[in-house]
Structure formats: structure tokens, C-alpha cells
């Protein structure tokens, strides 16, 4: 058993265990903490495979951005402190059956794919070639994604504002002008 394989086994068990934790956790913030461990594990898996840029991107975008947003949302929308999530037993049975079927199908495909000869190709290209690729051979998706991000930015800001915001905003700026605390 080589070192790579041993590290992979450790990482994979951490990822799998915390993925189960996400599903069975009782409160939404605990789910988010297990998701945090899953995402960090996946980031280190990328480092192990040799895709350094993707590992760092996973850390900064998912862990530093998306997951903080999710926890933030979970805190803002929970009715009370430590509100528990209830799941009916029938739903567990049915959902578990579907998930097991999907896992079995995918695992069979994966094993079949693993039989094919793969070459131990050199490490995937780093940040530099990736950036060049984004501006030359993959320019169109890059531009589409950037426009899409702008649309998302405007759309999310538009959706999340409340109806009363206009009145509140003017009140707030008025109090700021008067030097008072809002």
C-alpha cells in the first residue's frame, strides 16, 4: 500500500463519514458543519490528485463563501434556537432505497471504467496554463460565466431586498445625517 493510497483512504473515509453526517444531522447548522468537513476533505483530495489550483479555489469559494452564506441563511431563517429537523420513517426508507439504487448503479459503472487502461499522465497543468486556456481556447464559456455572475449579482440583490427597504433606507440615512445612531 503506497503512501498516496493510504492518504486517499484516510481522506475518503473522512469525506464519506461527514457526508453521512450531513444527511442525518438534527439541526441545520450541524449539517453545515459536516458539509464543511466534506468540502475541506474534497479540497485536500484535489491537492492529493495534483490539481492545486482547484483545491485552493474550492477552499476559497465553497468554504469561505458559499458555506458561510448557507450558515448565515440557516441562522436567519430558523424559527428558534437549535430547531430540529423531523423526517418521517417512510421517507427514510424510500429515499434510502433510491440513494442505494443510484449508488449501486454508479459504482458498477465506476468499476467498469476503472478496468479500462489509464495512463499515469503527468500532473494536470497548473494555474498558468489554465489561465491561458481560459483566455484562448475556452474564452466563450469564460465570458458567458462572467456575464452570468453579473446577472446573478443583480438578481440576488433584487430578490433579497425587502419591500419596506425604501422607507427604512431613507430613515436610516436621515438619522445618519443628523449624527444619531440608527
Amino acid at each position: 500500500m503506497t503512501l498516496d493510497l493510504a492518504l486517499f483512504v484516510v481522506l475518503a473515509s473522512v469525506i464519506a463519514a461527514s457526508a453521512i453526517g450531513v444527511v442525518v444531522a438534527h439541526t441545520i447548522v450541524r449539517s453545515a458543519v459536516f458539509l464543511l468537513f466534506t468540502l475541506i476533505g474534497v479540497a485536500f483530495l484535489y491537492f492529493l490528485i495534483g490539481a492545486e489550483f482547484l483545491g485552493a479555489a474550492q477552499l476559497i469559494v465553497y468554504v469561505g463563501g458559499t458555506l458561510v452564506l448557507l450558515v448565515f441563511g440557516g441562522m436567519l431563517t430558523s424559527g428558534g434556537p437549535f430547531q430540529t429537523l423531523r423526517v418521517r420513517r417512510l421517507e427514510w426508507l424510500f429515499g434510502g432505497f433510491v440513494a442505494l439504487a443510484i449508488f449501486a448503479a454508479l459504482a458498477q459503472v465506476s468499476l467498469a471504467l476503472g478496468q479500462r487502461p489509464t495512463t499515469d499522465a503527468p500532473l494536470p497543468p497548473g494555474a498558468g496554463p489554465l489561465g491561458v486556456a481560459f483566455l484562448t481556447s475556452h474564452l466563450l464559456p469564460f465570458e458567458i460565466v462572467s456575464v452570468h455572475l453579473l446577472v446573478v449579482l443583480v438578481g440576488a440583490a433584487y430578490l433579497a431586498r425587502t419591500r419596506k427597504r425604501a422607507a427604512l433606507g431613507s430613515e436610516d440615512s436621515a438619522s445618519r445625517r443628523n449624527g444619531g445612531t440608527p
Partner: peptide
């Protein structure tokens, strides 16, 4: 790391 600056920022932000 080839992406050291990026990595340090990413980790410290978590």
C-alpha cells in the same frame, strides 16, 4: 505550493 498566495488567503478566510 505553486498557488501559495491563493492557498494562504483561502485557508485564513475559513
Amino acid at each position: 505550493l505553486n498557488v501559495g498566495a491563493f492557498f494562504v488567503l483561502a485557508v485564513l478566510s475559513s
